[in-house]
Amino acid sequence: MNDTGDTGDGTGFDGPPGDHGADFGDTDFDGADFDDGLLEEELRQAAGVLDPLPSALLQIAVDAYALHDLDARVAELTFDSLVDGIPVRGATDAPRMLTFSAGEVTLDVEVGPQGLLGQVLPPQSARIEVLGGPQTAATLTADDMGRFTADTPLSGPFALRLRAGGDVVVTEWLRA
């Protein structure tokens, strides 16, 4: 209020967007710029106090190094009904459909409130681990037709690790 030059009341800066460039080097502008830096820094410290990265999350990310697996191939997400799907009228609680591909191996997965329904292509029996993080895993088996199911609903981050033949394929991490 005491400095009409840079009260930054919003409207004052709604002029031509490029015009501040001409002010560069002007002392008023430098002063305002300096104040912006201070305010941003003050806000940064406020965030550090009121909304910091929880230490538990920091630790989980540190532990995630264990998920670094050079031997496995990553099956990339090639279809996600949440992003690519065309909403069907009336089908608001349809299961989420996901497709992962790594070379010739494809995994189709349906994630619903009841759990997981999946299909390995080409059809083959396989051992499938449902990963929930660096520590947790549940094991499933795909039958000769490549079908597999899990009765526990997925929650949080997950990935599927598939062992078929001598091959290990891990799906891209997603949030259920």
Binding site: D51, I60, A64, Y65, H68, G133, P157
Partner: peptide, 27 residues
């Protein structure tokens, strides 16, 4: 935090990002 998620969602997204980064590390 910039995307205004619930706490639970925020935590899960944060973890998912790091898990995926670990997975893609060599790539």
């Amino acid at each position: 935090r910039a995307h205004r998620l619930s706490d639970a969602d925020a935590h899960e997204v944060y973890q998912t990002v790091w898990f995926r980064f670990a997975q893609h590390l060599g790539r």
